[in-house]
Nucleic acid binder design. Structure first.
Lengths: 126, 126
DNA sequence: CCTATTGGTAACTGATCAGTTACCTATCTG
DNA sequence: CAGATAGGTAACTGATCAGTTACCAATAGG
């Protein structure tokens, strides 16, 4: 399953964030959410299919933990959107933030510090 | 609308990637996708609601362009998942990749270079 | 002024999603 | 061994999504 689709649901995002703090069982996670245990179980299955979590069976208990490698496609998209050609005119991307990814063993593009981040030319409010 | 939900659809992701390469009109984008023009129009509206694109009206033409600032919540989630406590045991996150975000004007946590990235302890295949 | 182009939305349809209850299996504890 | 705990899935229901065709409005060009 697509990690983007997996992260589209607020419950699944909560689960992923919670598991970033350490492994947990279905019953633990169900206690922290207003939905039923089978619903949590189904969300965890989708997260596992997306490669975002891993399950370790310990007797009758199944401990779920975050699989950070599963976030790679999401990080890749941010990189792709960040590095694509930007017009020399003022561009409002990541005001106050400069996302930088260093790829081990790969040549890097010009460093973030050489890339200006002018203030927003235009803000969209939908 | 939630930027995560906006990016969950493959068509919308394609549109966002395409717009990263420069602005475009609905008719341009519709020519590059197998779905109908009204479907493209609806996707662009959702992307705008999510803050991921901006529309500039030029006569009868509406030029859509990427709004990188709208990606902030996605970048924030990656940061949150990356920075949360990781057990000292080997952790497989971002093998070969080290995501680092420098927040202007904010104290930084210990730099990425001080954070080890050991090889994967366990790989999940769902 | 008429035609062409651009583009948004209504209404419809089929597909998918998310939560529930019920049920079942596996493992642990007294 | 019986009861308790943990957890997955089937079946169901209501809600939402994504693509279509049809229609309309605004702007540009001949």
């Amino acid at each position: 399953m697509d990690p983007f689709v997996a992260l589209a649901d607020p419950v699944r995002r909560d689960l992923v964030v919670r598991l970033a703090g350490g492994p947990a069982r279905v019953v633990d996670l169900a206690a922290e959410h207003p939905i039923s245990r089978p619903a949590i179980s189904r969300h965890l299955r989708l997260l596992a299919e997306a490669g975002l979590v891993t399950a370790d069976d310990l007797g009758r208990e199944r401990h779920y933990r975050l699989e950070r490698a599963g976030l790679q496609p999401v990080a890749d998209l941010l990189v792709a959107l960040r590095e694509t050609p930007v017009p020399p005119i003022a561009d409002a991307d990541f005001d106050g933030l400069d996302l930088e990814v260093r790829r081990t063993g790969r040549d890097r593009r010009s460093s973030a510090s050489s890339h200006p981040s002018p203030s927003a030319a235009q803000e969209d409010t939908a």
